[in-house]
């Protein structure tokens, strides 16, 4: 089963080909804001290098964010088009889950920078599901001020928390100050890796959890309600 993983949700353009549990190859290229120009040529290139044709694919895994709106659309559109043309399943996977699945530990806190001292986060437990090996999303993806994280995670203060992604140093410092046990990862692990996406995609597709391409959308996190009441204050005269 040959799966193509596509991740354009962050500054890193990720592409991977996974063939029945065997990684054939991957790119994780830091290409700020060039995903629209680079994605299709790179797909062509990786196919050519590895002697694969688009028609050989059995499925597509695509990162659905949270992430840059324009970036997400490029990856998701490409995945949908490939899925439609070749009539193969497509699975969208949260960028946070990709990071968490690539990290070790029982409790995992993947983070993406939401700017202005905020992060997108979710919180996973590795062995939390009884009937499958997928990570259990203990806390759903949301955005929060970095300073709110100790409060959000307070019931896990006695567990070791693996922190992965962006803003990890800052978040770790704050959690340690608040008596949490934490671990972080070296640079080569501290990113949503395309190989992990392709592996997860294959697992989800095999377990019958592919997405309907007409329903698949970017996991577009909304700004919290408290911040959006400017309309009243500034909207009228």
């Amino acid at each position: 089963m040959l799966i193509l993983g596509i991740d354009t949700s962050t500054d890193i353009l990720g592409l991977a080909l996974m063939d029945s549990g065997q990684l054939k190859g991957e790119y994780n290229l830091s290409l700020k804001r060039q995903h629209s120009e680079k994605l299709l040529p790179l797909i062509e290139e990786i196919f050519e290098l590895l002697g694969v044709e688009a028609g050989d694919l059995d499925g597509i895994a695509v990162a659905v964010g949270p992430g840059s709106f324009t970036g997400l659309r490029i990856g998701i559109t490409t995945a949908k088009v490939l899925g439609r043309i070749f009539s193969i399943p497509v699975k969208g996977i949260s960028t946070l889950e990709i990071m968490a699945a690539g990290a070790e530990g029982e409790y995992i806190l993947p983070l993406l920078d939401a700017r202005r001292k905020r992060v997108y986060y979710s919180f996973y437990q590795r062995n939390g599901n009884k009937d499958n090996n997928f990570l259990k999303e203990v806390k759903k993806a949301a955005s929060a001020g970095i300073s709110e994280l100790p409060q959000i995670l307070n019931e896990y203060q006695n567990q070791e928390i693996s922190i992965i992604g962006e803003k990890t140093a800052e978040v770790r410092e704050l959690l340690v100050e608040n008596n949490f046990k934490t671990r972080i990862f070296e640079a080569e692990k501290n990113l949503p890796r395309a190989a992990v996406l392709a592996r997860l995609g294959g697992d989800y597709i095999c377990s019958g959890q592919a997405d309907d391409i007409y329903q698949l959308k970017p996991a577009y996190l909304k700004i919290p309600q408290a911040e959006i009441n400017w309309q009243q204050k500034y909207g009228s005269k």
Binding site: R115, I228, Y234
Partner: peptide, 22 residues
């Protein structure tokens, strides 16, 4: 994506942007 740039951003007629900004 513009909001995330390390830039000085000026917006004229900003009413529609109000629900989207931090």
């Amino acid at each position: 994506d513009y909001l995330n740039r390390n830039a000085v951003i000026f917006i004229e007629w900003p009413e529609l942007a109000l629900p989207l900004i931090p």
